[in-house]
């Protein structure tokens, strides 16, 4: 018990999330042993993939401080998916669909970055604005209709399962998280991000190109959302103008739950990954137990308050 009390920051959050995750699993095991099959694992990972990528983008933007937040991620996912499909309808060769989605995401993210860094608009307001612009544009371009015609080779990748693990999760989510973790922990780049989140003024004084770095981070968040859009296409077989619905708040919840400090400079991608897993496992578990979905929203909220409270209290103990 004492050892847990000594944990702080990311380590405490990770321990807490792991503990909560084990509790969820145990409760499930007791109430419904039949849940535990490879199929359930596949389901959880399948529904985690998109959220994990978007939450990672959200996390790095918040981590870099300057009141950074990206409320437009859901809009970017919707619009990149639609942009890719429409480009293909206009004659883009189908093998260019993956880069098209990712480039669209990068461009939309970069636009956020320009608003925030060059025009100095508060990120909350800038990305709230672009959220409405992007998701509105996705609906307007399609009239609300789903865009079919995803090439079948992409479906093989998107719906494939390799020893219980969905292929998109294996080939995109895991590598991306590994790279992000390594960059943040062991490179100068990673240190810069923490430094500018922790104290922007000092970061500028020691010569870190804060604005340029931030612009790149917003673009990266866009790239990750574009990748999420691509996965949604490959998995569902059609581009839907509202596919990114609710992702902005869910990704924010995952980032906060994962121990990213809202003011930046503190937290790690491991926590974000654990938080995504916990959220999706919890949701799956409640669904398997046929708990009314109305309750699930409240339970996720209560969980967020609880974890943040634990984090807060641990700082007071110091």
């Amino acid at each position: 018990m004492n050892r847990i009390r000594k944990l702080q920051g990311p380590a405490l959050i990770l321990a807490l999330l792991a503990l909560l995750w084990i509790i969820v699993i145990l409760v499930l095991l007791v109430l419904k042993p039949s849940v535990f099959s490879l199929g359930t694992v596949t389901t959880i990972l399948q529904f985690s993939t998109i959220l994990a990528l978007v939450a990672l983008g959200q996390a790095i933007v918040i981590l870099a401080g300057g009141a950074g937040i990206d409320l437009s991620v859901g809009g970017i996912v919707s619009l990149s998916a639609i942009a890719g499909m429409l480009a293909m309808k206009l004659g883009l060769p189908s093998f260019l669909l993956p880069p098209a989605c990712i480039i669209a995401g990068a461009a939309l993210g970069a636009f956020n970055g320009v608003l925030v860094t060059k025009l100095s608009i508060l990120p909350l307001i800038a990305t709230l604005g672009t959220f409405f612009v992007y998701s509105g544009l996705a609906l307007a371009l399609t009239g609300g209709a789903a865009q079919s015609g995803v090439p079948s080779w992409l479906l093989i990748w998107g719906r494939g399962v390799f020893s219980g693990i969905p292929v998109p999760f294996l080939t995109i989510a895991i590598p991306v998280f590994a790279i992000a973790g390594i960059v943040l922990m062991w490179t100068a780049w990673g240190r810069w991000i923490y430094a500018m989140g922790f104290n922007e003024r000092s970061a500028r004084l020691v010569g870190i190109p804060v604005d340029r770095a931030r612009l790149i981070l917003y673009s990266l968040s866009g790239v990750l959302s574009g990748a999420a859009a691509l996965i949604s296409l490959a998995w569902l077989g059609s581009g839907r103008p509202n596919i990114g619905q609710n992702l902005e708040l869910e990704s924010l919840t995952a980032a906060m739950l994962g121990g990213i400090a809202i003011l930046g400079g503190r937290g790690g991608v491991g926590g974000v990954f654990a938080a995504v897993m916990l959220l999706v496992t919890l949701k799956t578990g409640l669904l398997q137990l046929n708990v009314n979905t109305v309750w699930q929203v409240g339970i996720v909220g209560a969980l967020l308050v609880f974890v943040l409270l634990a984090d807060r209290l641990s700082q007071n103990w110091r």
Partner: peptide, 23 residues
């Protein structure tokens, strides 16, 4: 069994159906 999404989100609905299949 009656179970559905709290807002009209197709992915949430899909997740509910997938879980019923797993059950």
């Amino acid at each position: 069994i009656y179970s559905g999404p709290v807002d009209t989100n197709p992915v949430d609905q899909l997740q509910i159906v997938q879980n019923l299949i797993d059950q």
